[in-house]
Design a protein around this nucleic acid. Structure first.
Lengths: 214, 214
DNA sequence: CCGGATCCTCGGTGATACTG
DNA sequence: CAGTATCACCGAGGATCCGG
């Protein structure tokens, strides 16, 4: 692991910590909440098991993630972002925003996971437009993921799990919902693909405004 | 170069383009302006020549950088960021901001370059504090780099080269100036280390406010 | 079934030398 | 100056196996 730049530069320092292959994708997975080893392997799709184990060790010793044993009866270990690890979120969302601009719309054999919705929503959120808004929204891929966006006085919080009194609820399959957050699928197309959109129509307009095209 | 994630995710897509070793550091170099092959090699400190050539080829075919032949008499080729390459700047500054928080203050054998000041200033700039401000500042490492920060109605522009009518001019050696932009060296310490600070004292206060600690 | 460890192969990286 | 050529090496990829 002597493959570090060792330069006195913020960017080089950041890349010395999370620049290795798979490292930032592990952070992406944990941005959706604590996750077990096996869930991480599934969310990362094609990561070799030994590489995942090595990265988790490195990220833990860098203080970016933490292991925690769940209380019995659910005795299993989960990984989660530390406070310092959460500080990576602005950088991860900025990279994702860039990537979404050049992401091919079609999904030919390209794997996707419903919980990536969390990052997609964070990346598209526009704080300047949200301003003083306070409202919550809920997104569901039946049987796979339930994601909530809660905006409190312009500040967003994206989590796995239900929203309290969502102004809008959108239920669709993963490609449709991801396509909506990426701007390649509009509500009309989503409805044609079997999506269910319920709630306040004016809130749906606001939702589209605070999640502008990347 | 089949080492791509191939996932339908903005972050994975971004890393497929600039996730390989040295790629983002090349972007850092070009954020200080167009640069020749040899200058890139010097700014990246320890990059193998074949790797630099390979990355430049990849970044060019990805549309992130462009080669350009300078007009005679200065007949040489330079590399520069394309429009799409400039779109990486928010992500690079966000990563640098994270890295600056965990960057060890001392520089024991860790190499640095004066033009990294450009990224350091961009990373520390706080748009919320700058608000409606319009003012310019100049930073100089004698014989190595001259950097200007020009704020127009709250929007920053950081360039190599002199500022027009700077409200403040700071002249110091590279470690002192980099330390100031990283928050580890305050003006008093800088003066003790031989720095020259000239201009409007109230503008110096404003400068410290729009470049808060990362 | 979970959470890895182990073994092997292959290709990218690092270091250096060389050339138009 | 702007790369290309060569080679050793180590980390990624892929599969399998193992203890709790």
């Amino acid at each position: 692991m002597a493959r570090v730049y060792g330069q006195h530069c913020g960017l080089a320092q950041a890349l010395d910590l999370v620049g290795e292959r798979w490292a930032l994708l592990i952070v992406r997975e944990l941005m959706a909440g604590p996750r077990r080893y096996t869930d991480l392997a599934a969310g990362l799709v094609s990561i070799p098991s030994n590489v995942l184990a090595a990265r988790l060790r490195e990220l833990e010793s860098a203080g970016l993630i933490a292991r925690r044993r769940l209380d019995p009866p659910a005795a299993s270990t989960v990984y989660e972002l530390s406070a310092r690890g959460h500080e990576l979120e602005p950088a991860v969302t900025a990279l994702a925003r860039f990537g979404m601009r050049v992401l091919p719309p079609a999904a030919e054999g390209r794997p996707f996971r419903a919980h990536w919705l969390v990052l997609a929503i964070m990346a598209r959120f526009d704080a300047a437009v949200a301003a003083e808004l306070s409202e919550s929204y809920e997104f569901e891929v039946p049987g796979e993921a339930l994601v909530s966006l809660t905006v409190v006085e312009g500040r967003p919080e994206v989590r796995m799990g239900p929203a309290v009194e969502p102004a809008v609820r959108i239920v669709a399959d993963a490609p449709t919902l991801l396509g909506m957050t990426e701007g390649s699928v509009d509500p009309a197309q989503a409805l044609a693909r079997g999506a269910v959109i319920e709630g306040d129509p004016s809130a749906l307009v606001r939702l589209a405004e605070i999640l502008p095209a990347p």
